[in-house]
Each structure stands twice: as C-alpha cells, then as structure tokens.
C-alpha cells in the first residue's frame, strides 16, 4: 500500500502542498473572527491556487519561457504564468477593496471583530 502511495505522493507533492496551504487559508477565512485575518486567509487561499497553477507549468529540465539561442532548450509552459499574472492583480484588487471596507467598518463601529459586530448589530 505504502509502496504504491508513496511514488504518487512524491510525483505530485507540489499539488498536495498547494492543497494544504489552500485549506489553511480557507480555514482562516471561515473560522477567524478578525476581519483583517479573514482577508489574510483569503490571500493565503488565493496564493495557494497560484502555486497550484504555476507548478503545473513546470517541465523536467525546462527553462524559463524566454527564447534562447540554444534550439535544444526545453521551455516550461508559459500560459499558467500569464493566467496567474492576471489572477494576482485580481487578488490584489480584491484585497484592496476588502481592506478599504475594513477601514470603514472600523470607523463606523470601532471594532473589526466579527462577534463584537454581531453583538452590536443585535443591540440595534
């Protein structure tokens, strides 16, 4: 059993690592009460997905996808890089809007703890 699992594990360890990081981020998003921590969780989640994409582009013996003079060189897949460049910008934008919201929430309520917010809303 171990013998069959282990090679698989090693063959795809990058993906499994990405999954673990994703789960950490997702857990932080759901379970953490602090709004900033939620956004950090979101960022971890997104970064893990980037890792997942990027590592899928790798090729054994591949080099960066910039044309070299050596015709025998093997290039890694450039497309995931492009996608992730876009996705990073999206993630940054989302984070910016989220943080702006947190600032406004802090101004309005004086706290950014979820349970305190819920308590204050219940009182109103």
């Amino acid at each position: 059993m171990i013998e069959t699992l282990l090679p698989g594990l090693f063959l795809r360890y990058n993906y499994y690592m990405a999954v673990i990081i994703m789960l950490i981020g997702l857990y932080a998003m759901i379970a953490k009460g602090n709004l900033i921590k939620k956004i950090i969780g979101l960022n971890i989640f997104q970064t893990a997905i980037f890792l997942f994409y990027i590592s899928s582009s790798d090729i054994i013996g591949g080099t960066a996808p910039i044309l070299t003079s050596d015709p025998a060189s093997v290039y890694v897949n450039p497309l995931p890089h492009v996608l992730i460049l876009t996705a990073i910008v999206v993630a940054v934008s989302t984070t910016a809007v989220g943080l702006a919201l947190v600032i406004r929430i802090y101004e309005a309520y004086g706290t950014i703890e979820e349970d305190e917010l819920i308590a204050m809303e219940a009182k109103e």
Partner: peptide, 28 residues
C-alpha cells in the same frame, strides 16, 4: 469540518493529475 471535506475533495482530485514536471502532460 467543511475545510476537511473540501480537503478530501481536493486530495481526491489530485489523484489523476499528471505528475510534477511530466513532459507528456496534456496542458504542455
């Protein structure tokens, strides 16, 4: 619980994925 469920789903999903650095991967 929900994170673990999604984790199981993800790990299950990666089972059929081409190996890291596989030059035969369809995406390549």
């Amino acid at each position: 619980v929900s994170v673990l469920l999604i984790g199981v789903l993800l790990l299950w999903a990666e089972g059929d994925i081409p190996a890291f650095g596989d030059p035969m991967a369809p995406s390549y």
